[in-house]
Design a protein around this nucleic acid. Structure first.
Length: 564
RNA sequence: CGGGAUGUAGCUCAGAUGGCUAGAGCGCAGCGUUCGGGACGCUGAGGCCGUGGGUUCAAGUCCCACCAUCCCGACCA
């Protein structure tokens, strides 16, 4: 490719509103342009990289026996209604109507579509298992796009769906996809951490995110110091250390308390005891049913809303209680009781059994309870893990400390089980015994654009991008200097043609007017792995410099080609 | 959706207290001089000052509404 003909230009200054390295560099290097917030043009350079990533993902998927296909972008809204994902689960669904008033969802993920396609066939157990996938543009009506390609409203995703006869067989597929993802990211030059995470609106019981550690990432997760446990903040388990287990259990009493004691800080000051000794209540409301939920937890811990939603089987439906909600159960802020309110459900955290003789639980203006013990003085409707894990807490076995990390989620794998095959009519296969049975599913996603941006986040320096060989838009950036000299220009063109004939992709900076400094700066910014220079100085030889290295060497064209 | 900020040339930005016939640097076009780390000179093209209302003799500048964008939060594979 001749640089002078390349559509898209480099730019000296980054756009003012770009906050991440990948956003700045991809824009400056002429890889992408913003259309509207969260929707991007991929310019020729960007598209070449995107295609390279797609190629690698496709090769690895195909090698597992998965089969590529493609589904319509517009999904009949009835399908989303069939699984009740159109309104209740908080999916960022964009819907449209056509001229005949038929309603569609712009596909944001395609479980329903793939199941709908599969159920059109009379599947036998002999047809299973299989894994079908597609690359397609996904739409997410994000409230807030950010970070260039890191969180967008439209992007290409590889989404795969597996169909098995049962869980045992599914697990083999899940493991296969896990290993495949590791290979894919390895080839792309990304170190991934596999993290247990929350299924959210996808459904199913367990899933894993593939995360590349980065400060600009939005995924927070906890890792045990020895690295054997990694889990997303929303599901991370940890040990509730016993606080005062050797203390004698005392009898509950109602005591006088000064009116100024209202917050946790006040408690600590008044009783001169650590926060863990107090009871804390947090109130929520389930949006769909209006039911009030009181979460009771040890004072030093915080509620994890996602965990609580799972306990309540109300994913994406929990709102913080308003003052009006508190009034409706006959109380107000600061005076919520850990027991006794009517028409509420009490969910307690596991930590309630880790403390003896709690203080609090039934606060009034100048009274409160002390020596409160879970099980004897009060109990919740459910006792479960609903606490937010934090850095410094210990793993469940108590052996290791947890460390908080941030990263970019570049892919994920989900166990779906019977979630969709149970909800959708006719999602069955005929088993050996002649009976209809639902198939056992999994799904597997990779965000291509986000992966591309992540590669830039990891591979760049202050001059520009540094693409790994396999994804670089071209293998070689050929810089011609002194090109007004016919002889030198002929040499450069010879190099260009030779490389081309050898099947090596090359971007040839053939501009006559541009200065050497400008060409080098552009080459560094664009970040192609190998730079070759032909100029007055290089004579019969050619200069080779790798983007990632400082030094360059003169050599013959043949040696240079060997080197590439 | 809550809090904060910003919308002036393709990009980055300047245009106190209203007086604008709207500027600079980069970029772009032409000519000349340069030519191994974003060279220089001259010339030139390029603006409904986000949109709509209002106040005023006069609005890029003040007021209101809306829209858009960014940051924090909420939400979110």
């Amino acid at each position: 490719m001749l640089y002078s003909k390349l559509f898209g230009k480099t730019q000296k200054q980054p756009p003012a509103d770009a906050s991440t390295a990948s956003h700045k560099l991809l824009h400056q290097g002429g890889y992408i342009r913003e259309s509207t917030a969260g929707r991007y043009f991929f310019l020729p350079l960007g598209q070449r990289v995107q295609q390279n990533i797609i190629k690698i993902v496709k090769e690895e998927m195909d090698s597992t026996g998965a089969q590529e296909m493609v589904s319509p972008v517009l999904h009949p809204l009835e399908l989303w209604k069939e699984t009740n994902r159109n309104n209740e689960t908080g999916f960022e669904l964009t819907t449209i109507k056509d001229r005949r008033e038929a309603e569609f969802a712009l596909g944001g993920t395609a479980e329903e579509m793939f199941v709908d396609c599969v159920r059109k066939f009379q599947l036998s157990y002999r047809d299973l298992p299989f894994n079908i996938y597609q690359f397609s543009t996904k739409f997410r009506d994000e409230l807030r796009a950010r970070g260039g390609l890191l969180r967008v409203r439209e992007f290409i995703m590889k989404d795969a769906y597996s169909f098995d006869v049962d869980e045992e067989n599914f697990k083999k597929e899940y493991k296969k996809m896990w290993d495949t993802y590791k290979r894919i990211y390895n080839r792309l030059g990304l170190d991934v951490i596999v993290v247990e995470s929350d299924n959210g609106y996808i459904g199913g019981e367990y899933c894993h995110e593939f995360i590349v550690e980065s400060e600009v990432g939005e995924s927070k997760f906890l890792v045990s110091e020895d690295g054997t446990y990694a889990a997303h903040e929303d599901i991370a388990k940890f040990k509730r250390d016993g606080i005062n287990q050797d203390e004698e259990t005392k009898k509950m009493e109602v005591i006088d308390q000064p009116a100024w004691v209202q917050t946790m800080e006040h408690n600590e000051k008044h009783y001169k005891l650590p926060r863990a000794r107090f009871l804390k209540n947090v109130v929520y409301k389930i949006r769909t049913t209006g039911e009030i939920i009181i979460a009771v937890i040890r004072g030093d811990l915080d509620i994890n809303k996602t965990k609580l939603e799972h306990v309540l089987n109300a994913v994406g439906q929990l709102d913080d209680a308003t003052d009006a909600d508190l009034t409706s159960i006959g109380t107000k802020r600061g005076y919520v009781h850990s027991w006794g309110h009517k028409n509420v459900r009490y969910i307690g955290d596991l930590s309630l059994t880790s403390v003896k003789n709690f203080i609090g639980g039934q606060k009034e203006e100048t009274k409160d309870t002390i020596n409160v013990n879970y099980g004897t003085d009060f109990s919740c409707d459910v006792l479960a893990d609903i606490a937010l894990a934090k850095e410094g807490y210990h793993t469940e076995d108590g052996k290791h400390k947890l460390v908080m990390k941030k990263g970019i989620e570049v892919g994920n794998i989900f166990q779906l089980g019977y979630h969709y095959s149970n909800k959708m009519k006719g999602a069955n296969y005929i088993d050996e015994d002649g009976k209809e049975k639902p198939y056992y599913m999994g799904c597997y996603g990779i965000g291509i654009g986000r992966t591309l941006a992540t590669i830039v986040e990891i591979h760049h320096d202050d001059r520009g991008m540094m693409w790994p060989d396999v994804v670089a838009p071209y293998r070689v950036h050929l810089v011609g200097l002194d090109l007004k000299d016919d002889e030198i220009r002929a040499k450069a063109e010879h190099v260009y043609n030779t490389l081309h004939d050898k099947g090596i992709t090359v971007l040839y900076d053939d501009r006559k007017e541009a200065s050497a400094g400008m060409k080098f700066a552009d080459a560094d910014l664009i970040g192609i792995p190998v730079r070759l220079v032909v100029s007055k100085k290089t004579g019969d030889q050619i200069e080779l410099k790798k983007r990632a290295e400082k030094s360059f060497q003169l050599m013959s064209l043949e040696d240079a080609i060997k080197n590439i």
